[in-house]
Design a protein around this nucleic acid. Structure first.
Length: 470
DNA sequence: CTCTATGATTCCAA
DNA sequence: TTGGAATCATAGAG
């Protein structure tokens, strides 16, 4: 400020007050210079006035007030004032000229573009949902993603809301501040040389300041969106193993529907629900329908690829559900109702209960009824074997999983149990292990009605391990 | 660390 | 749209 004052002082020294023209040159004779012209006295006067102005801050308030009043009443005041205004305008122009060029900040543009693309800026609910939808549509079926998707969207709209309120706040504050400053300056312009252009410049400065604050806001908003986005994507990518119970439920379904392991939409929902309930003692992890689909997709392909590897598992789950099948059969027989066994995916229900058969005779009779009375699409290899093998299970108790399951699945399970029973290899075509009768020569599952050729239990078809990634 | 299991994603065909 | 196949990326065991 001192420098500026000195410059003004100097500049004033070269002012031709009569013409009110300003010579902007800096190298001027000192204000008190005596050049012998007739303006000498006047210059002396001006110098005196200026001196008073410059030293006014050094004086006490009362003194200064008195001085100010005196100066205001000075005959030269209006002229001096307008000159000061002109000078200030000149310097203001030069200052403004220096920082006038206001190229659209590339960073700001980037931020704006990103906010627009993410749907944070721009029209309400316009691009936002579009971006979120695009993010969600990138993966799998839209049905279950709606959960994560809506979560993402909710968070995004939260960010959006904060952004807009903040932006509004800033704008309001900026406007308030601007009008305040403008009023102040207008007020002061009566006593101080302030040109409208200077006010304009001031407003520009304020706006720039506020826009830099806005940029910070935009930046942090962008960051928040990025974090949200990456977290959203990470969450999709991050793998958390299902709980043991959930896997068990899925496996039970899979192996009891081996001939057609394609759960219907309802069955998937049921499974998802069941898994989520079972898993609820965990950290709130739920299993969605899409995850069930993923699981079955993976399971089918992996099972098919290497059946040998899954033998043990298959045996286990088949045994687990075998008695349930018998139980279901018992229920069916007791009700004298014969469900159509050709609908593999109908009426899938689960019920937690322990089921224990009382006696071998009871079991046998139930099974006899079950298979002699049904018109299943399966060719059972040998009912005698079945009885024998089922007797091997006598006395074992199993965790019940399926009551009222369709006959098809019961058949699957029972066939498995039969075939995995040691000592009956010959009767089953020389293969003691379960072969996926639903799996046709092409590797398809579609035609489940004919028992396929026996596949070596130790090695799947070619024992391909193409999934050995990494 | 490596290796395997496994949930998720992507690409493609039907 | 769905499922198969390949692949990715991580969890978890050793």
């Amino acid at each position: 400020m001192d420098a500026e004052q000195a410059r003004i002082m100097q500049t004033l020294g070269g002012v031709n007050l009569a013409a009110h023209s300003v010579q902007g040159g800096m190298a001027l004779p000192p204000p008190h210079g005596h050049d012998g012209t007739d303006g000498d006295g006047r210059k002396q006067d001006i110098g005196d006035i200026l001196h008073q102005i410059m030293t006014i801050t050094d004086q006490s308030l009362d003194e200064a007030q008195a001085k100010k009043h005196g100066l205001n009443c000075h005959r030269m005041k209006p002229a001096l004032f307008s000159v000061l205004c002109e000078i200030k305008e000149k310097t203001g122009l030069s200052i403004r000229g220096a920082q006038e060029e206001d190229p659209p900040d590339p960073q700001l543009m980037r931020l704006d573009n990103m906010l627009l693309a993410e749907g944070v800026a721009g029209p309400e609910k316009g691009g936002g949902s579009a971006a979120a939808a695009a993010a969600a549509a990138a993966s799998g079926s839209p049905t279950d993603n709606s959960i994560e998707h809506s979560d993402y969207r909710a968070k995004l709209s939260q960010i959006r809301q904060i952004y807009h309120t903040e932006l509004e706040k800033y704008e309001q504050a900026c406007n308030e501040f601007t009008t305040h400053v403008m009023n102040l300056l207008r007020e002061q312009s009566r006593t101080r040389p302030i040109s409208p252009k200077e006010i304009e410049r001031m407003v520009g400065i304020i706006h720039r300041k506020f826009s830099s604050i806005q940029m910070q806001l935009k930046q942090s908003t962008c960051e928040a969106v990025m974090i949200l986005r990456s977290r959203f994507l990470d969450a999709r990518r991050k793998r958390r193993n299902f709980s043991k119970q959930a896997t068990e439920i899925l496996n039970e379904y899979f192996y009891s529907h081996l001939s057609n392991p394609y759960p219907s939409e309802e069955a998937k929902e049921e499974l998802a629900k069941k898994c989520s309930i079972t898993v609820s003692q965990g950290v709130g992890s739920t299993i969605t329908v899409a995850q069930v689909s993923n699981w079955f997709g993976n399971k089918r392909i992996r099972y098919k690829k290497n059946i040998g590897k899954f033998q043990e598992e298959a045996n286990l789950y088949a045994a687990k559900t075998a008695v349930n099948a018998a139980h279901a059969a018992a229920a069916a027989v007791q009700n004298s109702q014969t469900n159509s066994p050709t609908t593999p995916n109908s009426g899938f229900q689960m019920k937690d209960e322990e089921f224990q058969l009382d006696s071998a005779e009871n079991k046998n009779s139930l099974l006899t009824n079950m298979f002699t009375g049904s018109s299943g699409s399966f060719n059972l290899p040998n009912s005698g074997d079945m009885f024998m093998s089922m007797q091997n299970l006598n006395g074992d108790s199993y965790q019940g999983a399926q009551v009222g399951a369709n006959v098809q699945s019961q058949v699957d399970t029972l066939r498995h149990v039969i075939s995995q029973t040691a000592g009956y290899n010959d009767a089953l075509g020389g293969n003691s292990m379960y072969s996926p009768h639903g799996l046709n020569a092409n590797g398809g599952w579609q035609d489940a009605t004919t028992p396929s050729s026996v596949i070596s239990p130790t090695e799947g078809p070619g024992s391909v391990h193409s999934d050995t990634s990494n």
